[in-house]
Simulated assay, not measured.
Amino acid sequence: MRKVLTVCLGNYCRSPFAALVLAHRGAAELEVRSAGLIGKWEGEPANESMIVAARRLGLDLTAHRARQLTLEMLDWADSVLAMDASVLDVLRQIADDDVQPKLTLYLGDSDVPDPMGKDQDAFNACAVLIEAGTALHIR
C-alpha cells in the first residue's frame, strides 16, 4: 500500500480534502494523511466552506482535525503532494535528501488555488479541481 501525504499551508482546506478524496477513490491502494506547514488550526475541524464543498461532492470532511507537518510525516510518506508551489518550496527547504524525490505538486505542474477568504463558489471550484486531480495519483 502506497503512503501519500498531502500538504497545504494550514491543513484547514485543501490538503484535508485532497486526503479525503484520495482515500475515498484509492482506498485499496493508498494510505493517505494530510498536514499543514503552520499549526494555526492545530486540532481544529476543516473550514466550514470546504466541508460544504466536500458534501456537495458526496464526501464527509467533518471528522478532520488539522495537524502541523512533522519531519516524521515526511519520512512516513512514499509521496508528498504539495497543494501549491509556495508549499513545495518550503518542503524542499526542510526535507532531507531522502525525502526530496518524494516531493511534487498535487496537480503535477500547477497550483491548487487557496480559497481562504473567498466565497463558497471558490471553495466549490477548489474541491472540484482537487477531485479531478486524483487521477494523477491513483493507478
Rank of each mutant, 00 (worst) to 15 (best):
114 D>L: 14
118 K>E: 12
46 A>M: 05
51 I>E: 09
100 Q>L: 04
94 I>A: 10
46 A>D: 04
98 D>C: 14
90 V>E: 02
52 V>E: 09
55 R>N: 07
117 G>W: 06
77 A>K: 05
72 E>Q: 11
52 V>K: 06
83 M>C: 08
67 R>D: 04
10 G>P: 05
7 V>S: 04
55 R>F: 13
119 D>A: 13
72 E>Y: 10
122 A>C: 15
16 P>W: 03
76 W>M: 08
56 R>M: 11
128 V>C: 11
92 R>F: 08
130 I>N: 03
88 L>E: 05
122 A>F: 13
96 D>W: 09
85 A>H: 14
90 V>C: 03
102 K>P: 07
12 Y>T: 08
122 A>R: 07
31 E>R: 14
120 Q>R: 03
107 L>F: 09
9 L>Y: 08
85 A>G: 08
125 A>V: 12
93 Q>K: 14
19 A>G: 00
115 P>G: 04
109 D>H: 11
9 L>K: 05
60 D>A: 03
1 M>W: 12
125 A>T: 14
129 L>S: 12
54 A>L: 00
126 C>N: 12
57 L>V: 13
59 L>D: 01
89 D>C: 01
79 S>E: 13
135 A>C: 11
93 Q>D: 11
62 T>C: 11
37 L>T: 01
51 I>R: 05
48 E>N: 13
12 Y>I: 09
132 A>E: 15
33 R>H: 14
54 A>E: 00
18 A>S: 04
119 D>N: 11
33 R>S: 11
107 L>D: 02
98 D>S: 12
37 L>F: 01
43 G>R: 02
23 A>N: 07
4 V>R: 03
115 P>M: 00
113 P>Y: 10
138 I>T: 08
47 N>G: 14
39 G>C: 12
4 V>H: 01
101 P>F: 11
